[in-house]
Design a protein around this nucleic acid. Structure first.
Lengths: 252, 252
DNA sequence: GCAATAGTGTCTATTAGACAATATTTC
DNA sequence: GAAATATTGTCTAATAGACACTATTGC
């Protein structure tokens, strides 16, 4: 019975990679950093880095997130800071050939954040930017712009998995509010759904649905006209995490 | 910029652990193996083992599954063998203290299998058995049977996550058929839902629902009376993977 | 006034769930 | 016949989606 012989395990490196999503200008965007060294030098990649020797996986993801964006993570398993992004584990990628140098297992995490002013608040990446996910996932069809090149490593697959997770999770949970600022209007929340799903939703039915789901939205009493038109009520995210009944994605 | 320095990564061991679920005697059961060496010697644990140096994570999970049960995996990303269990990645667990000996990151996988005759077809575990998940997840409240002791390591948490995944996934996918033999009746499929969810379902509405969902079930033409009563039509799983509309879990 | 967004009301087709009734087997 | 399971039919309350209509701002 050879398993669990601590002295004879194959050497692995373990990293965390981050799929950081936000909604900017009506488009679902992801954070990409430009690689400063080989392999894939100069190419865009997902932010990430090594897990430290005495660090839990989620802590490593939160640390990388803070280093890249200044955001503080707000995960289900931990005390919630005043202002933070949603962080959850996505999946783990361990193809033996995914990194040409050595065996690297990457535990990808998904982050949903409100629209942020500056993409690179500080960190060790040469440069960083938000890019629409369609741009990052496009195949490189004789185009010249660097952003249209495929992502380094298997990061296109990881990004695709993260986008798919986000698209399905806002159906049956209140996670769409993680894309909104602390106070937001029903119209702003609707535009999040429209951007993430890439569809148009009926504003009237949407309003009735979200305000009628208990625990989804809590009115703050304030109003705003930042979208123009009639002033809209401001809401905060309510305590509910699972939506029952779910939001229905049209044309499935 | 220190990330990705291949010569200075902390040493990790990477394992796969398996949550193998089946339905036996109207109860959701998981495969447990008895540990033959410290730590947790003599305690029950989830099957698993080291990922080999040149092996993908899913391949390692499929290999461990075959070693423990003789089952062949049938994953979405690979050619489907004639007869196989459903295999998918569950989550990754990497608390620095989860193994007292060294830093071990475990990539847990979820397996859904039809009822099997012998739990330990061959393998390196001293003994193995199916146990109801409630038994394995019970706290050790001054009981004496070994099966009621908590699982080794963080395996109770992993098993709980796997059970939760299975319970939610049969709602909106056709995965419940993975618990059935190749040919099965509507009543047998209903008893799978009842065992996994722990509820009673109306046989008449259930029948109308599953036979009315396109692509869920394909009649084979045969009938069986193995449940007693009027002969029931036999079905195979259809091509549909996502159920729309989903099966609704009562009392949520 | 017009344009834009917010919000309410109403109608209809669909559906989930309750449950009566019938069909076909074993005992 | 009695008991068990399978299968179909019917009714009702709830709901998703379409869309008319009103409200309140900025210009």
């Amino acid at each position: 019975m050879p398993p669990y012989d601590p002295s004879a395990f194959p050497p692995f490196a373990v990293t965390v990679d981050l799929v950081v999503l936000t909604v900017r200008r009506h488009a679902l965007c992801a954070l990409a950093v430009r690689r400063g060294e080989p392999p894939f030098q100069g190419r865009w990649a997902l932010p990430g880095g090594f897990v430290r020797a005495d660090e839990d996986l989620e802590d490593a993801a939160a640390r990388e997130l803070a280093e890249e964006t200044g955001l503080h993570a707000q995960s289900p398993t931990g005390p919630a800071p005043a202002y933070g992004a949603h962080l959850e584990q996505l999946a783990t990628y361990g193809d033996p050939k995914r990194d040409p140098r050595m065996r690297v297992v990457s535990v990808a995490h998904l982050v949903l954040a409100p629209d942020l002013p500056a993409p690179t608040a500080g960190g060790d990446a040469h440069s960083a930017r938000w890019a629409p996910v369609e741009t990052l996932l496009e195949q490189d069809e004789a185009r010249e712009g660097e952003l249209t090149a495929p992502l380094a490593f298997d990061h296109a697959r990881i990004l695709g998995d993260g986008v798919e997770r986000a698209r399905s999770k806002i159906e049956y949970s209140s996670l769409a509010t993680a894309f909104c600022p602390q106070e937001f209007t029903v119209g702003e929340l609707r535009r999040v759904y429209e951007a993430v799903w890439g569809v148009a939703l009926d504003p009237r039915n949407f309003h009735r649905k979200v305000t009628g789901t208990p625990g989804f939205l809590v009115p703050t009493g304030g109003t705003t006209t930042r979208q123009g038109g009639r002033p809209a009520q401001l809401f905060r995210a309510g305590g509910a995490t699972l939506l029952n009944p779910p939001m229905l994605r049209p044309e499935v």
